[in-house]
């Protein structure tokens, strides 16, 4: 018992590493605050462009979405961060990570939004168009509000995954939460910082998980 406490719940080490980990948490939050809105916007753009039913555009979007959903995000990060200097580009670490995550998350969000748009009956488009609304007004005022509501649980669920995904940025040594926890572990020869990081993730994500489960419960009882 004592050994477990010493190794995993070492208060002394926890208090020493605390500030460093909080800095990491700050970076994780910053990264999420960049990646989630951009990913949502990108995904929305992908889905809306796809709903235009332009043949060549749809092919392009399918290639984009399929590729970045199938491509491991970890490998993508390594490619972008370590590959771009060879192309003569010197991009900051945070930007490289943000680009990699954007490509991955926008394709996932895109699929969620697409499912949402496709869940809306054709009659809704027809009713809106028959009253003189333009195509984009129809999307904005009639289709998207319903589509987003229909896939809200999936959007939140995907957002949870994105926040967890940000820990992959440690592979290029971006000082986010997991990266800092592992550094602290290496310096102290003690895994307590990892446990502390796990607790921080938990506190960060738990409210979202709760919200998600409430929404899912609600949507089941509505059907």
């Amino acid at each position: 018992m004592d050994a477990i406490l010493q190794n995993f719940f070492n208060m002394e080490i926890a208090s020493k590493a605390g500030v460093f980990l909080l800095k990491g948490l700050g970076m994780t939050l910053l990264l999420s605050a960049i990646v989630i809105p951009l990913g949502l916007l990108g995904g929305l753009a992908v889905a809306v462009l796809g709903s235009l039913k332009k043949k060549w555009l749809s092919v392009l979007l399918i290639v984009y979405v399929d590729f970045f959903r199938a491509f491991p995000p970890l490998v993508l990060l390594i490619f972008i961060y370590f590959g771009t200097p060879f192309l003569g580009l010197d991009i900051p670490k945070l930007l490289a990570v943000a680009i990699g995550f954007f490509l991955n998350t926008s394709s996932y969000y895109g699929e969620v939004f697409r499912a949402g748009i496709e869940s809306i009956p054709k009659g809704q488009f027809e009713a809106a168009r028959s009253t003189g609304l333009s195509g984009s007004q129809t999307l904005r005022f009639v289709i998207l509000p319903q589509a987003v509501r229909n896939v809200l649980p999936d959007l939140i669920s995907n957002t949870l995954e994105v926040i967890k995904l940000t820990s992959l940025a440690s592979v290029v040594a971006l000082p986010e939460l997991l990266n800092n926890a592992r550094q602290a572990q290496a310096l102290t020869y003690n895994p307590t910082p990892i446990v502390l990081a796990a607790l921080m993730y938990l506190v960060l994500l738990w409210p979202l998980v709760r919200l998600l489960s409430r929404l899912e419960h609600k949507s089941i009882s509505m059907h």
Binding site: A128, T131, G132, L133, S134, Q137, F141, V142
Partner: peptide
């Protein structure tokens, strides 16, 4: 009112 507001 949607079309009244957005179209007209």
């Amino acid at each position: 009112t949607l079309a009244l507001r957005k179209v007209q």
